[in-house]
Design a protein around this nucleic acid. Structure first.
Length: 886
RNA sequence: GCGGGCAUAGCUCAGCUGGUUAGAGCGCAUGGGUCACAACCAUGAGGUCCCGGGUUCGAAUCCCUGUGCCCGCACCA
């Protein structure tokens, strides 16, 4: 038998193991009607850069679920891919171009620029998949996809055309979010709000007929050049007389009407609002209601237009400053007020977003949102943890039309053409040969220059990756997917859109469950970010501690849906746990020799060859396996990891291995063979249970066990009835008693500072009716020289230290080592505790409300507790009396 | 304004559908170079489960109020 290295070193095997898995196609999932499908489509990481710790968490959760289901015998598909991330990538590549070559993307031109982006995609996409391999992702690389590959493009076009034909996509001139730096429109979801310190400037608009006029407050005085009215509430008596009259725009003297509209709130500001339809969403609505013009005073570069007179060409904020000064000098500035202004910023470049009127493509949301809301309410779509359903619903219920066109080059080109001859707009799956309306030849048709929002293609990801719009076997078998794993920060961008797209195109939700996780923060709880420089590179952590350790830490770190902190010390702990398993396995391998057999339950004649500890560990392992399975079904991954860790470290290593050593080192070949078999058998189950969480180390150890197949393709532990077997239960009970005695003796030894090398005799006084059943275990594990059973206190020789246990009193004669003062103190403390305990329990049991209403099992358990406490109390009191004089 | 989260041992966090003597890892203290493991072992000390109410026979757990931290959405001149 090969031996394991003395210390666990993940570098020795992680890469090799991964290559073996990949080479042998172990991640590949096939359509297989005799198996149940389990499908996860990976949220495609952006090709903009490296994987961060959040990805590591996201990927690990998916890998755990996939590996677990694969072991359970599902045809488990985890479909990987990357996202072209239209705006983010374009910005990155353009930045790089400027830095390295001093060129703008316009300098290169569309075609050449796109070539550069594809090159970028090859480099960074490759880096990402390399990192995923380091993490141990068992995804099916044969099915790897890209949101801009041919199949996805086909899906995008099909989706667009179908929605257009249904009237759910339209083109229109509306107020949209504009990022002047990225030079594109943004959807509402792509605008982040930040509270900035700003001001209200109270500005007087003089009456057209020469009166003092109306004062309005504004946080954006530079938009005044595009004002078309002053609106007041019809209910606001202060302004009733003004309605229908006119005021003059300060300085410029342009006349604008005062109109009545429900929008102004008399409580806010001065009650009168300037109306600038081209630069404010609310004003846009007001303007539309009143049929007002939409002059524009800020252009797409965030510079003032000719509308702003002498400020034309100035930056919007520079203009604001100068303009306020001019207003002040001219006596129109009534006052200013410091105030916090919630300001929209571009989620990619942080530039302050400018609301602009622009011709864009939109998806009409109302009709699409409804089924998505119903699906969640009906339970066809489940969120884990459930609270995220509220967020999902809230967003859908308030959703507005989705602006999907982007003034960018990198992305799916909009499948729409304009006829240069008649102006007809043609939406089609393929480049039209001629204009259907006027018959002009294809040359007269020009395709829309814009591309689609990245999320328009991501929305189709769960089915476009499986072949849609074709009706493929994959699609029929693997769709709908089983679970979507993603961070809560992406519910709006992505989850919501996948759901309504799928409901519209496939007629059902794209997944049964949305498993939501939180963010990985830094040690101080701050968000990891480039600007703070506090990001931790998962690959560096893997280099130091191994992928298994990182994965286990990420799983252990927090409950589902909650943010977690990255604490390096804790990764070290999980690495140490891996090392523990490694060494236990090393022990097993060193001792099993050429053992045959599988640790089976009984001999042919039905009598047991298994000893108590064998039955105990088999039973315990089976119980924990069942619990872990249950936890996984409920997505309680961190609970599962804790239970497995406890089983391996506390039960298998600390107790079973220790309990079995005397047998292994002894001469009895038969019992030696049995415990060897049980050691291997239980270790195998432990490896199976741990494999989804720590795939590398488990596969590596497995390879030393002479198994016919790899662990990744083995099976999940299934119950064999140990847990229900009465003999096993009795054996387990005896082992628990043994553990209790061993612990008590160790405790006494430590408290008395008796050297560990010194063997101690112990005496046990059993409660009446209890059967003594003591094995070698106590001698070997607690350093006991002799175990005596006595009939009464009176039989105790000399000076002893005692411990009161369930069903017995344990005495260790320590002669001069006995500190009777400490002993009395200990007993008094114990008596106090037990007295409190008995009082509490009897009060509870005397309460009729409790005995009548609590479940019988609970009442029974409390009765037993009381009996035990009373018994212990008697023994403690007796002991106190016995040593009172010492 | 609307919605959500968190508050448990010195630190990082578990604790499911109410019934536990409230747990883990790290840290701390004491002892140990023992033949799987010092990336270790053994033992131990640490907790008015944020405050206050309520529901209940029974609350860390469910409900309400408050306090403190954090987040999302919306929005104001």
């Amino acid at each position: 038998m090969k031996e394991l290295a003395k210390t666990f070193d993940p570098k020795e095997f992680e890469q090799r193991i991964y290559e073996d898995w990949e080479r042998d196609g172990d991640f590949h999932a096939e359509v297989n009607p005799s198996k149940k499908p389990f499908t996860i489509v990976m949220p495609p990481p952006n090709i903009t850069g490296q994987l961060h710790m959040g990805h590591a968490l996201d990927q690990t959760l998916q890998d755990v679920l996939t590996r677990w289901r694969r072991l359970q015998g599902y045809s488990a598909l985890w479909l990987p891919g990357t996202d072209h991330a239209s705006i983010a990538t374009e910005v990155r590549v353009a930045d790089e171009l400027r830095e390295t070559e001093g060129l703008s993307k316009e300098d290169l031109g569309r075609g050449e620029f796109l070539k550069r982006v594809w090159k970028w995609k090859d480099i960074y996409g490759g880096k990402i998949t390399e990192q995923q391999r380091r993490l141990g992702d068992s995804c099916d690389w044969e099915r790897e996809r890209f949101t801009m590959d041919e199949g996805c493009n086909k899906a995008v076009v099909e989706f667009f055309v179908r929605l257009y034909e249904k009237g759910l996509i339209y083109r229109g001139s509306r107020l949209i979010n504009w990022c002047p730096d990225c030079g594109t429109s943004l959807s509402d979801a792509e605008v982040e709000h930040e509270d900035l310190n700003g001001k209200y400037w109270y500005i007087r608009y003089p009456a057209a007929d020469g009166g003092a006029g109306i004062t309005v407050a504004t946080s954006r005085p530079e938009t005044m050049f595009a004002d078309v009215a002053i609106a007041v509430s019809p209910e606001d008596e202060r302004y009733t007389d003004w309605i229908g009259k006119s005021v003059l725009l300060p300085v410029t003297g342009r006349e604008i009407p005062v109109i009545a509209d429900p929008y102004p709130d008399p409580e806010k500001g001065t009650g009168a609002v300037k109306i600038t339809p081209a630069h404010d969403p609310n004003d846009f609505e007001v303007g539309a209601r009143h049929g007002l013009a939409q002059p524009v005073c800020i252009d797409f570069d965030a510079k003032m237009t000719a509308e702003a007179g002498k400020y034309e060409g100035q930056d919007r904020f520079a203009c604001r400053k100068a303009w306020v000064e001019e207003l002040d000098a001219a006596g129109y500035l009534v006052k200013t007020e410091d105030v916090v202004i919630p300001t929209g910023k571009c989620y990619r470049c942080d530039t302050i977003v400018e609301p602009m009127i622009s011709e864009q493509w939109f998806v009409k949301m109302e009709e699409l949102a409804k089924p998505a809301i119903e699906a969640a309410k009906r339970g066809d779509l489940r969120h884990v943890p459930a609270r995220f359903e509220k967020i999902y619903l809230h967003w859908l219920e308030e959703i507005r039309d989705w602006c999907i066109s982007r003034q960018l080059w990198w992305g799916h080109r909009i499948p729409a053409w304009t006829c240069g001859t008649c102006g007809e707009i043609i939406v089609a799956r393929e480049t039209p040969a001629a204009c259907p309306k006027c018959g002009a030849a294809g040359a007269a048709l020009s395709q829309d220059e814009d591309v689609l929002d990245t999320w328009f293609s991501s929305a189709l990801w769960p089915f476009s990756t499986l072949g849609w719009p074709e009706d493929t076997p994959d699609l029929r078998y693997f769709f709908p997917t089983s679970v979507l794993v993603t961070g809560y920060d992406i519910i709006f961008f992505w989850v919501v859109r996948m759901v309504f797209s799928s409901l519209e195109m496939m007629g059902e939700p794209p997944f049964e469950t949305v498993f939501v996780h939180g963010l990985v923060r830094d040690e101080q709880g701050r968000k990891m970010s480039k600007s703070l420089g506090n990001g931790v590179d998962p690959i560096e952590v893997i280099d130091t501690y191994g992928a298994d350790a990182l994965r286990f830490f990420l799983l252990n770190g927090s409950a589902a849906g909650n943010d977690m902190r990255f604490v390096l010390k804790n990764v070290e702990s999980t690495r140490n746990f891996a090392n523990k398993l490694w060494n236990a396995s090393r022990f097993v391998l060193m001792n099993i020799g050429k053992t045959k057999g599988d640790g089976s339950k009984t001999k042919g004649d039905g009598s047991y060859v298994l000893r108590d500890e064998d039955m105990w560990i088999l039973r315990t392992t089976e119980q924990v396996a069942a619990e872990v399975t249950d936890n996984l079904e409920k997505y309680e991954l961190s609970v599962a990891t804790q239970k497995i860790q406890e089983l391996i470290r506390d039960e298998y290593c600390d107790w079973y291995i220790e309990l079995v050593k005397t047998r292994l080192y002894g001469e009895d070949e038969e019992t030696k063979a049995v415990c060897r078999a049980v050691l291997v058998r239980v270790l195998s189950d432990l490896l199976r249970l741990l494999h989804p969480f720590m795939p590398f180390i488990t596969e590596e150890i497995w390879s030393y066990l002479d198994k016919p197949n790899k662990l990744i393709k083995d099976r999940w532990p299934a119950p064999e009835g140990f847990a229900e077997d009465a003999d096993f239960a009795a054996a387990a009970g005896r082992i628990e008693t043994t553990k209790e005695i061993v612990r008590a003796v160790r405790n006494i030894r430590a408290e008395a500072n008796a050297p560990q090398s010194k063997k101690l005799p112990i005496l046990i006084l059993f409660d009446e009716g209890k059967t003594p059943s003591l094995g070698e275990h106590i001698r070997s594990l607690a350093g006991v020289s002799d175990i005596g059973v006595i009939k009464s206190e009176a039989d105790l020789p000399g000076d002893t230290v005692s411990a009161i246990l369930k069903g017995m009193a344990l005495h260790v004669p320590l002669a001069d080592l006995v500190d009777f003062a400490a002993e009395r103190e200990k007993l008094a403390k114990e008596r106090e505790r037990l007295t409190g305990e008995t009082q509490r329990l009897s009060a509870k049991l005397n309460n009729e409300g409790f005995t009548a209403k609590a479940p019988a099992a609970v009442v029974e358990a409390e009765r037993e507790k009381l009996a035990a406490a009373e018994e212990a109390l008697t023994k403690v009191t007796a002991r106190e009396a016995a040593i009172r004089e010492k």
